[in-house]
Write a protein that binds this DNA or RNA. Structure first.
Lengths: 138, 138
DNA sequence: CCTTGACCTTCCCACCGTGGGAAGCCCTAC
DNA sequence: GTAGGGCTTCCCACGGTGGGAAGGTCAAGG
């Protein structure tokens, strides 16, 4: 039974900035915080829990939309674990797509950089390749 | 010596949308296009070349700032190829950082998903882990 | 010549997620 | 009672892209 926290304290304790806490509340990820007569928001342990949940999910690359879905499942004690797993795996698939895209870029750039002698002469296969600009696929 | 292109034709030929062509011009990545008396922009082969350069650089994940740097080097016929190579390798380093961050997320999520039985029972280690929310590193 | 439809112009607004900062009130410790 | 830090709301910015409104222009066909 501890004293309620101010938004700044909740921010420090959760790793979510005060600015973002207000924003998440406005988005509906958090229930509207109760207010002191002065208008100050108050937070308790349950709110901290939810904030840390959000923080962790963001660290795992979930979008706020995805987090909203996760929170809905979290709030529903009768959810099937399969639902959560499906969400997680769909996100993994998305992350893999991004990773592959990046890997492709790295491969191309490494290949180009390898053929660039990198001295003070001006000719450079990297720029030449960029300039070549093969026919745009779309 | 062909007829100048309209912005729409340049867009189709370069893979950069008309909207983005105007935007890039406003940003200074492209020189202001000459105009017909009606105000229509006109593009020639050199412009197409530059647009395809930008398109390709974006496909390789360069930011518009990075592209501005690349274009400056491209425009400077006396640049040292080492300068270009340094830019490219710095970008590769950045891409690698992103790829590693994503790989970490994937690893964590896969580990969690593996321990989630994924049936219609409600208990789920994925949500439990998110909820646990270890002390925020910052 | 005139209409039609595709194209162009500028302008503003949206997304996502986050931060900066102004103007003004509140709370605590001295 | 005053100083300082914290809180409130509000608007604006970033990067990069798209949507769409309101209006002018072009080419082809009748």
């Amino acid at each position: 039974m501890s004293r309620p926290l101010t938004i700044g304290e909740a921010a420090r304790a959760s790793g979510v900035s005060a600015k973002m806490i207000r924003h998440y509340e406005a988005l509906g990820l958090l229930p509207p915080a109760p207010r002191r007569p002065s208008g100050y928001r108050e937070y308790d342990e349950a709110d901290l829990h939810r904030l840390r949940f959000i923080r962790r999910a963001r660290d795992l690359g979930f979008t706020l939309d995805g987090i909203a879905d996760l929170l809905a499942l979290w709030d529903d004690r009768t959810r099937a674990s399969a639902d959560v797993k499906a969400l997680a795996l769909a996100h993994v698939a998305e992350l893999r797509r991004r990773a592959e895209a990046i890997a492709g870029m790295i491969a191309t750039l490494e290949r180009l950089a390898a053929t660039c002698h990198g001295d003070d002469r001006p000719d450079c296969p990297i720029l030449e390749d960029l300039a070549a600009g093969r026919p745009p696929p779309r």
